[in-house]
Computed example of a mutant assay.
Amino acid sequence: MKALVLGATGATGKDLTKLLLEDESFSEVHVCVRKPLNIENLKLKTHIVNFENFEEWENLILGDVAFSCMGTTLKAAGSKEAQRKVDFDFQLNFAKAAKKNAVKNYVLVSAYGANAKSKIFYSQMKGELENAIKNLNFEKTTIFQPGMLDRKGSERLGEVVGLKLLKFVNKIGLFKSQKPLPTEILAKAMVNAAKIKSNGFSKIKLAAIFNFAAKNN
């Protein structure tokens, strides 16, 4: 299979790209990024793109399965408009290009609580993206809704504090359904889901993600 990755420079994307390069099921791994990855692998095909100019890179989205795990924070983006451009516009453009170029299998990382009718900006945006992707009608669409991600070496202070607190309450038996999800586990689940021979739409929530990561295909 030929894999396509959007968001390869993020925590989940890095783990995902590494797994795809190691997996013999994938002959090529194409990444669309703003700058080169610090990886040398014959299977890796790097496309340096300007995400603002969609028409310049849409013809590059050619393959068997597309993975979308791009994302940013409001603090990093600087405004809701800038965050929406990354978390919604760029990802939807990638999906539209994949559909136009006959990619059959689409895997999206969304978020816990995504709901287009939510009053919370982030949850509403993620819900709108889920709906837009679903309406593209890929032969197979898999959407993951992880909870708090456990990113290796995270420098996001709020995230680091939140993770420590959640891990503590998990240890004393609270909020077990909301335990942190290591990005490498999410990436493994994405790869496994993509390799399952099936059609249609499915949404994988936090508890099931750990099960998907444990599958042997």
Rank of each mutant, 00 (worst) to 15 (best):
E81Q: 14
S27W: 01
A102C: 13
K35V: 07
D15H: 15
N115F: 02
A132W: 01
K75N: 09
L129M: 08
Q83F: 00
E52K: 12
S110N: 12
V29T: 09
E28V: 12
I39P: 03
L16A: 05
K75C: 03
Q124M: 14
T72H: 02
Q124H: 11
L44S: 03
E24Y: 05
F88L: 13
G78K: 00
E128N: 06
L136F: 04
R34V: 13
K99R: 15
E40S: 14
D89H: 03
E52S: 13
Y112E: 08
S68K: 07
K96Q: 12
F67C: 05
F54Y: 15
N59M: 11
F121M: 05
F54W: 15
L136W: 01
D23Q: 07
S25Q: 14
K80Q: 14
P36E: 11
F67K: 05
T46F: 01
M70A: 15
A114T: 10
L20I: 13
F88M: 07
E40K: 14
K18A: 07
G113N: 08
C32L: 15
K126A: 03
M125H: 04
T72L: 02
M125S: 04
L136T: 01
S123W: 06
F67G: 02
A82M: 03
L37R: 11
E130Y: 09
S27H: 10
V86I: 13
H47A: 08
N105H: 11
K117R: 15
F26L: 02
I120Q: 10
L20R: 07
I120C: 00
F88V: 03
E28R: 14
D15S: 15
V49D: 04
N135C: 02
